[in-house]
Computed example of a mutant assay.
Amino acid sequence: MTLSINTDDLIAVSVGGAIAHPGFAGLPAEPYRLAADGTPFLLPTFGGIVYNVSVGERAFGWAADCIHPGVSVKGADDVKNRGLNVFACVGNTATVMTGQAQGAKGVVTGKSGRFSEQVIVHFPKDVRTKMAVGDQIVVKAIGTGIEISGHEAVACKGLSPDLLGKLSTRSENGVLKVGVVATIPPHLVGAGAGLTSEGGSLHMQSTDRALLAELGLDTLKLGDIVAFGDTDSRYNHGYLRGATSIGVVGQTDGPRAGYGPGITVLMTAPGGQLSTFEDRSANIATLLSLEP
């Protein structure tokens, strides 16, 4: 169905940053992290240009710790980066402003980290080979402030009008229903709980692989539209019976406890105003016609 939104009131504004370098904290000096069972590991993590992982591909099984598909962008300082992370919306257009790939167009596909470190942008794989760490990226940010007519209790978070218009939706008895690949139960909510929902990601815990297989969550793909049950993300992420949050799988799985695939929340409502139905094809790679 076609949703009516306040299109004429929305502001389009530039936000930007540079392709971020993968990094490690200065201390402790050793770069190892601990898996859920206490085993030390060293794997690629978020940041940089990822040449061989894209939206639409599997979220599990990579030798990685919550890797970002495509390109990771970060602002020049904490203040600018916060503006980038809050105002950039999934589905917004991003443009390369410097370097050999200057002029290339990409699409925002997610936001990263408990503390809103980076914005994730998809560029075709052949474009990525021309890009360099430090290249400047500008996002035409539009979506903050969306209101859906007849569904004012549904809060939109980092959701572009373009993506909203392409989601599979139904309106029944005042409830907005959205097609999702799967629903994640609240006891699998991991890192990000309790923190702001205006940027960053909310992780699905993935240590219990048998449960994931039982629930059909172990086959999720990057870009899948999913829901969190009993999760209220209006102002931060927390448990609330009857609440629903809907988001997009933006990052891969990882070995750490509490850090499975990272999900960028797009919509939320506190008390039954938002619901779901199964749509196994609900993936932004298809919805936004992303080039491989």
Rank of each mutant, 00 (worst) to 15 (best):
L84G: 03
P186R: 15
C66Q: 15
V154D: 05
L222D: 01
I263T: 06
G99V: 05
G223R: 01
Q100A: 15
A269I: 08
L10Y: 10
L202F: 10
A29M: 11
I225A: 02
Y235R: 11
T45W: 12
G143C: 09
V265K: 04
G26R: 15
G113I: 11
I142F: 04
K80P: 00
T144W: 12
D224Y: 11
Y239M: 07
V71Q: 01
G271C: 09
I146F: 08
G199Y: 14
R33M: 11
R58V: 12
A193R: 15
D162T: 15
S112M: 10
A155Q: 14
K80V: 03
A191I: 14
A132Q: 15
H68I: 06
T98D: 08
T45V: 04
G145D: 10
T286I: 06
L290E: 00
S281L: 10
S275A: 15
M267N: 07
R58G: 05
D162W: 07
P270D: 04
T268R: 03
V13R: 13
D232I: 03
A243N: 09
V73K: 00
G260T: 12
L167I: 08
E198F: 15
F277L: 05
Y51T: 07
K130H: 14
V265M: 10
G91F: 10
A227R: 11
G262A: 11
M131W: 03
H68A: 10
T219A: 14
Q102Y: 02
S72Q: 01
P40C: 06
S160D: 07
A29D: 13
G250E: 03
G91A: 05
T276W: 07
V226S: 03
T93G: 01
E117C: 09
I49H: 01
K125Q: 14
P261A: 05
H68M: 06
V15T: 11
L220Y: 12
P31F: 05
S206P: 07
V79G: 00
A36I: 08
P69V: 00
V138W: 13
D253S: 11
V189G: 02
G75W: 13
Y259P: 01
P44C: 03
R280V: 11
L195F: 14
P292T: 13
I5D: 06
L176M: 09
T276V: 15
I120F: 02
A104C: 05
V226Q: 03
G56T: 01
G200M: 06
T196N: 06
V96H: 00
D135C: 04
M131L: 10
G56I: 02
E214N: 13
I11C: 04
V127M: 00
G216D: 05
E291D: 15
F115Q: 14
A269C: 06
P186V: 12
T169M: 07
